[in-house]
Design a protein around this nucleic acid. Structure first.
Length: 874
RNA sequence: GGAAGCUUAGCUCAGUUGGUUCAGAGCGCCUGCCUUACAAGCAGGAGGUCACUGGUUCGACCCCAGUAGUUUCCACCA
């Protein structure tokens, strides 16, 4: 059979993915098997695949494929998230390009545009995941705004409202002046900035003097309604009871006292702007101050300010500084580093704003979410995130869940014509409640639904429940079968946004955890350690990578350096390594497929030994692999398999069993080799699904449905440790011979003899044929005497020589032996020191002491051999 | 300001209750090879005071304390 010397992934990958889909291998329905469930962290519906998704979904696919091959009913549910702010922003932009302003069209018209956009761009990312080989149950693809999920969200809102956990009120919230919506605390990112600290003069009313206030935001003085000092501040006692004049504005404001003010900062005088700062708001509340909102929603100056009306806040800052300076009211300006909150989505500075919003009380939910993580019902990998999680929950504030957006789940609150509101899952129910509340019959038109929609995460947090319709229909068979899910694979930056809240929802609605294990991936960075981002342009296109290296190659590249929770410095060369590995496997296949089998041949001794050894080696690595996977150590598991295939199978086993050029191989060896190969492909399959399926089918004719993806993982057998030990000795011998060949420039083609001086008959002769084959040794001769012209080496306490007619450099040989002698003597000394130490012999466990005694005996034997050899050379 | 993590070979990282010759792996690097599966390969090789200082112990990469560097999270005083 002609097989190309290079593995070509493109055709293979497409072929097998289609085959798996046709066979419905990804599809799961409840049955008597143990379920294994993963729900995908839903990507933004209009997003495109980036390296973070690649990592995350590769890991999920490894776990799901392994579970499938363990005989579990594996179900990986895919879906997308409507991503309220992000998607709405995209639609607004698109409309703007067409000259349409959001404010000029109705909610219904806008939503139609949004749905069009969603249908046009939605799901691209899910198609891209297919290229990666993701074995999601596509029949179950869900969307956070589809019917079941939407109903679930509305139901949960009403339920929590009825439980008294959701309330509406005026609070200081984080306002995004570009997206024109409130945000939750989690959506604000603080960035360090080099800014200025401005010292402004506030004239004291009725006096000549003035007080100086230090501020980073001079543009907010139009909203000042007080100056605050610390009552215990000696340097500002003179201001007590006074009134001061806001510069430029001319408004007279009182000096209030509060020990909130830091005496050390600036001048100890604080301007109080209750409408535009969280702490000032608190002060204003406490001291009954007036609150003047000087900004419009888009952060331009409002009429209420009286000055600079209509200008943007940043422009005002520049202008007002000039004006203050011109008026002699600016004392000085200092450089200052502070942190400014930015909107996670639109990347503009947040404006604290007083507004009417909906909130979810968190005290109760935080409490029920902490318990399962503390108790270990949910395990975090790596566990360091437990601390982070606990700290957040213990300091949590109420969750602002309303957004002034249209793309999302509209808040199911209905306002009555004469004030007041009812919360209901639908309009009929709302009408009923309205009548119950007021005694009046209203028509649907008379009720006005709250125009705001809910935070995207208010739907995401129900994901593991709502995917199986567990909110609306909690008794259904599917939900009972698949929930709780097993593993959640996600990035640590959404531990609060998503992970914590899913646990809350799971506990609140099922009194059950939504998943048992959470695997936190690292963040994919570039070679220089920078986070991959669109703006930096340092993120490779995953699809191009797959085109270049194959999906299996890229998967391996992602996994090789990705222990849980560690950042991943991504480098294309990792994918190259993955591609090379595919090629290695491919060539091993070419070798085996090139063999002709002769049924009349009996199995050579070398092959017999090789087979026994590889069986042992394989079982050892299989045990390690299973252990690694059980502990979510995917990189280590993959590396173990990589070395098992490349080093043990290809470099050792195949070299041992392959017949000389032109000769046939016996039936037993052939069959054993194919079986080994198959088993290797099975344990590799979860990591590299395509090439393993291809090789599986090329190794043997398969009946319909005999596919590796649904095969069972090999069972683990006991490891023949003695065999591994003995073979290790033979490997030592072989490596020594190769080293001598390399050092002495003896070509492999030139056959040599091997002389063994083994007085105590320590060494098993079973491996002689192996040594002969792998080192091109013509004769293995057991002798009592050392030859004269020979290069020697020692393994254990056995001497080996390669006689060479050419002169042996006695000096060099002696030097080599001398070094080995010194090393062994030094080693012996340290062992003897330990053994002569009474406290060691009495204190250490007997097993440890026995080991030391054995080390001593071995070293002594070796020293004796070396000394004899040196004497002979002299 | 508070908290947590990290520091082992040129790079990325293992090292699971202190005890095998325990100082490791992969990649990279160097040397020699187109040996009839594979140059995307084969064989061999070199590289490290385990951040630093002190302590506990018969014995420390491992446990404790401190120092330095670094990363992340939380909070935020204008």
């Amino acid at each position: 059979m002609e097989i190309s010397s290079k593995y070509s992934p493109q055709a293979t990958e497409e072929k097998w993915y289609r085959h798996w889909i046709d066979k419905k291998y990804f599809h799961s329905t409840p049955d008597e098997r143990e379920p294994y469930t993963i729900v995908i962290p839903p990507p933004n519906v209009t997003g495109v695949l980036h390296m973070g998704h690649m990592l995350n979904n590769t890991i999920q696919d490894v776990l799901i494929r392994r579970a499938r091959m363990q005989g579990k009913n594996a179900c990986w549910v895919p879906g997308t998230d409507h991503a309220s702010i992000a998607t709405e922003a995209k639609v607004v932009n698109k409309l703007a390009q067409q000259g349409i302003k959001k404010t000029d069209i109705s909610r219904e018209e806008f939503l139609k545009h949004a749905w069009d956009w969603t249908h046009e761009h939605g799901g691209i990312i899910l198609k891209q995941l297919r290229r990666l080989g993701a074995s999601c149950d596509w029949d179950r693809t869900a969307f956070t705004m589809d019917e079941i999920r939407s109903k679930s969200v509305v139901h949960v809102f009403c339920d929590l409202y009825n439980k008294g956990l959701i309330y509406r009120g005026v609070r200081m919230v984080n306002w995004d002046p570009v997206a024109l919506t409130a945000l939750s605390d989690e959506e604000v990112i603080y960035k360090e900035e080099h800014s200025k600290l401005y010292y402004l003069k506030y004239m004291i009313e009725g006096e000549d003097g003035y007080a100086v206030v230090a501020t980073t935001r001079p543009e907010t003085i139009m909203g000042d309604t007080a100056m605050c000092i610390n009552p215990n501040d000696p340097k500002n006692q003179y201001l007590k009871g006074k009134k001061v004049i806001v510069p430029l504005v001319g408004r007279v404001i009182p000096v209030i006292e509060d020990d909130y003010v830091d005496v050390e900062f600036g001048t100890g005088c604080l301007k109080v702007t209750p409408a535009h700062d969280v702490n000032d708001y608190m002060l204003g509340d406490k001291h009954n101050l007036e609150s003047i909102n000087i900004f419009n929603d888009d952060a331009t100056v409002s009429e209420a300010a009286g000055l600079y009306v209509g200008m943007d806040r940043m422009a005002v800052r520049k202008q007002i500084v000039k004006d203050l300076d011109a008026a002699g009211l600016l004392e000085k300006v200092e450089d200052y580093n502070n942190k400014v909150g930015y909107s996670e989505r639109t990347n503009v500075p947040i404006e604290p704003k007083l507004s009417m919003q909906w909130f979810l009380k968190m005290e109760h939910l935080a409490k029920i979410a902490l318990a399962p993580v503390e108790s270990g019902d949910i395990r975090f990998y790596p566990p360091k995130y437990v601390n982070l999680y606990r700290h957040w929950l213990e300091n949590i504030k109420d969750w602002c869940i309303s957004r002034q957006l249209w793309w999302g789940h509209q808040i199911p609150a209905y306002y009555l014509p004469e004030g007041g509101f009812v919360v209901a899952e639908n309009i009929e129910e709302a009408l009923r409640l309205a009548k119950e509340k007021t005694g009046v019959d209203f028509s649907a038109e008379q009720l006005r639904q709250d125009p705001d929609c809910l935070d995207t995460w208010f739907s995401s947090w129900l994901w593991p429940l709502s995917l199986f319709d567990g909110i609306m229909n909690p008794d259904n068979e599917e939900f009972k079968y698949y929930y709780p899910t097993n593993d959640l694979i996600t990035a640590p930056d959404i531990i609060f946004f998503w992970v914590a809240r899913m646990i809350m929802a799971g506990e609140e609605y099922q009194h059950k955890v939504p998943f048992n294990n959470v695997y936190f991936t690292g963040i994919v960075r570039d070679k220089r350690g920078r986070k991959m981002s669109k703006s930096l342009g340092n993120s490779p296109d995953p699809i191009e990578l797959i085109d270049k290296f194959g999906a299996d190659g890229v998967r391996m590249g992602m996994l090789l350096t990705a222990p849980a929770g560690n950042d991943l410095p991504f480098d294309e060369s990792l994918c190259e390594q993955g591609r090379n590995f595919c090629n290695k496997i491919w060539n091993a296949l070419r070798l085996v497929k090139g063999w002709t089998v002769d049924d009349n041949l009996s199995q050579p001794e070398t092959a017999m030994i090789a087979s026994r050894w590889f069986e042992a080696r394989y079982n050892k690595i299989l045990a390690e692999t299973n252990d690694n996977l059980d502990r979510y150590r995917l990189s280590d598991a993959l590396m173990g398999i990589y070395k098992l295939i490349w080093d043990d199978f290809c470099s050792w086993y195949l070299e041992m069993v392959k017949a000389p050029a032109g000769c046939s191989v016996d039936r037993v060896t052939y069959n054993e080799t194919v079986t080994f190969f198959e088993n290797l492909m099975k344990i590799l399959h979860p990591f590299m699904p395509f090439i393993t399926e291809e090789v599986w089918h090329l190794l043997q004719e398969r009946t319909d449905g005999d596919d590796i993806i649904i095969s069972q993982q090999p069972t683990q057998k006991t490891v023949d440790a003695k065999m591994l030990d003995m073979f290790g000795f033979a490997q030592d011998v072989i490596n020594n011979i190769r080293k001598i060949r390399a050092e002495k420039n003896i070509s492999f083609r030139q056959a040599v003899d091997l002389l063994v001086v083994d007085k105590d008959c320590n060494v098993s002769r079973d491996f002689d044929f192996v040594i002969m084959k792998l080192c091109n040794v013509e004769h293995v001769i057991y002798a009592d005497e050392k030859p004269h012209d020979a290069f020697g080496f020692i393994v254990g306490a056995v001497e080996f020589f390669i006689p060479i007619a050419d002169a042996v450099d006695v000096e060099a040989e002696l030097k080599k032996l001398e070094e080995e002698l010194n090393y062994t003597k030094g080693f012996l000394k340290s062992v003897e020191a330990k053994l002569s130490n009474e406290r060691f012999v009495n204190g250490a466990p007997t097993a440890v002491v026995d080991k030391e005694r054995k080390k001593k005996a071995d070293a002594e034997a070796k020293i004796k051999v070396i000394e004899e050899q040196m004497a002979a050379l002299k």
